[in-house]
């Protein structure tokens, strides 16, 4: 099976820089901004984006982790998942603009679960969604506000995001499909 490299380290860096600028633009600055990454790799991406925005704005951007395992609707369809810690910045999320950050946006079910989890933690003024890769195949009416790369893919393919923090290198690749999946665009 073919493994196709779609984004390299420099591409990922550029995508995150652009997303950071777009977040600042749509939020009209960094006031009341909170970034919440969805474990595992979404947390690292959220920290990187917070770093970029922080250096642009010369201030610390609150960043945390939001685990959605206990809110999933597919727990009976997969082997038991191990939840990861949820860390909410001390400032909380009430009245703030929360930007959810995930590595791959696919069915939308993870984001649905994340929205429920946020509802139990507080009441943000607005919730936005940033994803490094949008691979399509949505099963719910959910879309991302900030996308690093639109990546049409076949359902049979796997999109692997690797990040230096845990995988030793930055890369996004498609695994297991043919070069041009029919009708997946």
């Amino acid at each position: 099976m073919a493994v196709r490299l779609v984004l390299q380290q420099a591409d990922i860096q550029r995508a995150l820089t652009r997303i950071s600028h777009e977040i600042l633009e749509s939020n009209r600055g960094s006031d009341d901004l909170v970034l919440l990454g969805i474990p595992t790799r979404g947390v690292m991406l959220a920290e990187r984006i917070a770093g970029i925005i922080g250096s642009l704005e010369q201030r610390d951007i609150p960043v945390g982790a939001l685990d959605v395992t206990m809110y999933r609707d597919d727990l009976d369809r997969h082997p038991t998942r191990t939840p990861r810690p949820t860390r909410i910045p001390e400032s909380g999320i009430d009245g703030r603009t929360v930007v959810l950050v995930d590595d791959v946006l696919y069915s939308g079910r993870t984001i649905r679960a994340a929205l429920d989890a946020i509802g139990d933690l507080g009441r943000p003024r607005a919730v936005r969604l940033a994803a490094l890769v949008d691979r399509g195949h949505r099963e719910l009416p959910i879309r991302a506000d900030f996308v690093g790369k639109n990546l049409p893919s076949a359902a049979a393919e796997r999109v692997n995001v690797r990040l230096a923090e845990i995988d030793g290198e930055d890369a996004v690749e498609i695994d297991g499909g043919t070069e041009h999946p029919g009708g997946a665009a």
Binding site: L75, D76, H78, T80, R81, T82
Partner: peptide, 9 residues
């Protein structure tokens, strides 16, 4: 009570 086959991910 979660998981579909008694195994763990």
């Amino acid at each position: 009570l979660s998981g579909n086959d008694g195994t763990d991910a």
